[in-house]
Nucleic acid binder design. Structure first.
Length: 354
DNA sequence: AAGTCGGGGCT
DNA sequence: AGCCCAGACTT
């Protein structure tokens, strides 16, 4: 980049003026409450705005302050996060507000170092909170910012690589508005979401196209450069629904780490561990009960970012039995609403309700 | 540096 | 059927 060919002041003005006139009205933009900025930024990680809106409203309604969230049970926090995905975000946020309550009297710290040590606050979220909540000129580089800036300056570093983020952070430090860093950062992201989109960018509507190298060379489709991720592997499971004669269902809590940590599910058995023909016998031995009736339900395919679940679902009516571990519960269909389930298991519950 | 961690929307 | 999304953490 040749700085003398880039009119920084004009870029800032064009961007910020556009943002102030075209920004969407979003629930986390109603005030500058650092806690709300924080919650919104965590929810927005890898998640689209329209998906986040109802979750954000419900979450703030249930947990209006850091202290209120700190004092909540983890299960209730996960329940409020149910269906949003990346559940470690919720557990890390919960951990972090407990620290804010204990160490900072429930006030979200304004200090960069203190903020950055909180669980779940990485480079992007740190910059977002510092700039949006506290008006500090910190870069907040997300996928939008890398896409927009890669086009404006024709930067061809691979944005899938971790270290590339630092290149864009250094760039933003050079050009960020010191008068209104909040509108600058949000403006770049809003531009990325509404105009400078991954495919078919609306360059004719872009407020900064006069400053954009890709537009001038009609090469916007070549940016950003991003290497492909490799394909998911498919895992095959049986899900076994055990319904006792008294109408209760066996659910179990997933481990506190790893995939879908802390959520509840019907027992899952990897295919290959047990032959399908021997499933009933296996369950009778494992849960000390007697299978009275077996019914196969609709199979489920669930696609995660890095793997695929292919699930065959069986509904067993069994003789009454008792559970032995605290990570297991016998619950009625109606009581399942109090437990957080992963989406594929929510879909199974819907099947049971029909 | 690579892998793990969800789910939905869009083309 | 991929690709994308206001990424962070672990190994």
């Amino acid at each position: 980049m040749q700085p003398d060919l880039f009119d920084k002041k004009a870029f800032q003005t064009d961007l910020i003026q556009w943002f102030k006139q075209n920004q969407r009205q979003l629930p986390w933009r109603e005030d500058q409450d650092p806690y709300k900025v924080w919650v919104s930024e965590i929810m927005l990680q890898q998640t689209q705005v329209d998906t986040v809106i109802p979750y954000f409203k419900n979450f703030i309604d249930k947990f209006p302050t850091p202290t209120a969230l700190a004092e909540a049970d983890e299960q209730d926090v996960l329940k409020a996060w149910e269906g949003l995905g990346y559940y470690s975000r919720a557990r890390n946020l919960h951990t972090a507000v407990k620290e804010v309550k204990e160490k900072y009297q429930g006030i979200v710290p304004e200090d960069r170092q203190q903020l950055s040590k909180l669980k779940g606050i990485g480079p992007y979220t740190l910059g977002a909170i510092m700039s949006i909540a506290y008006d500090q000129p910190e870069p907040a580089v997300d996928g939008n910012v890398m896409r927009v800036m890669s086009r404006v300056f024709r930067i061809d570093d691979d944005i899938a690589k971790q270290k590339t983020r630092r290149i864009f952070e250094n760039l933003v430090r050079e050009i960020i508005s010191l008068e209104d860093p909040s509108s600058f950062n949000q403006g770049v992201m809003e531009l990325g979401a509404l105009i400078c989109k991954p495919r078919n960018p609306q360059c004719q509507l872009c407020p900064v196209r006069a400053h954009c190298q890709a537009f001038q060379s009609n090469s916007q489709a070549d940016y950003p450069v991003k290497s492909k991720q490799k394909k998911q592997k498919t895992l095959h499971y049986y899900v076994t629904i055990l319904e006792s004669q008294s109408g209760e269902f066996l659910i179990e809590k997933r481990p506190s780490a790893g995939l879908l940590a802390g959520l509840w599910q019907f027992p899952m058995i990897e295919q290959g561990e047990v032959d399908a023909q021997l499933l009933a016998t296996f369950l009778e031995q494992t849960y000390k009960t007697k299978v009275l009736n077996t019914q196969k339900l609709e199979s489920i395919k669930h696609i995660f970012t890095h793997l695929i679940w292919s699930i065959d679902v069986f509904h067993f009516k069994v003789a009454d039995f008792s559970i032995t571990e605290s990570a297991q519960q016998l619950v009625s269909l109606a009581d399942m609403k109090d437990y957080p389930f992963p989406v594929p298991h929510q879909k199974i519950i819907e099947q049971l309700n029909i």
